[in-house]
Amino acid sequence: MASDRIFGLVMAIVALAYIASATQIQTSFLSDPVGPKTFPVMIGSVAALAALFMVFKPDPEPEWPGLRTVGALLVAVVVLVAYAYALKPLGFPLPTALAAGLLSYQISPKPANAAITGAGLSVGLFLLFKYALDLGLVPFPSGLAG
């Protein structure tokens, strides 16, 4: 109930903001009869209608995970974002081992297994991508390799 209402409300606001910014789209003097604004405004209207429908006629509440699991999910998101930033400056193997290990730990909290998974995936995938598939990956931190 509440989840659908909240999500519907958020989406309705997003849709209105979308329509508002669609009306600000610049048009060139060479425009066709429809122009670049109409279709986005139509989409925004459909989204707003559907979102309001969710607010007024919500489905039963889904089963949300407990606080600890939400914590684990947040940790996973942070790990992934950090991984995205680390991939270029630190090379492939090191961040991959850390990120894969941490993710593995979030799924099944056994430190030894997680460490082996991280190290194994890092080395295995690096060899696979570098030599079997010939993708250009940076092996080590750019500072060290010189």
Partner: peptide, 11 residues
């Protein structure tokens, strides 16, 4: 096991 598979898929 999923604790190997899913990190692999992510990477």
């Amino acid at each position: 096991p999923p604790w190997v598979l899913l990190p692999g898929v992510t990477m």
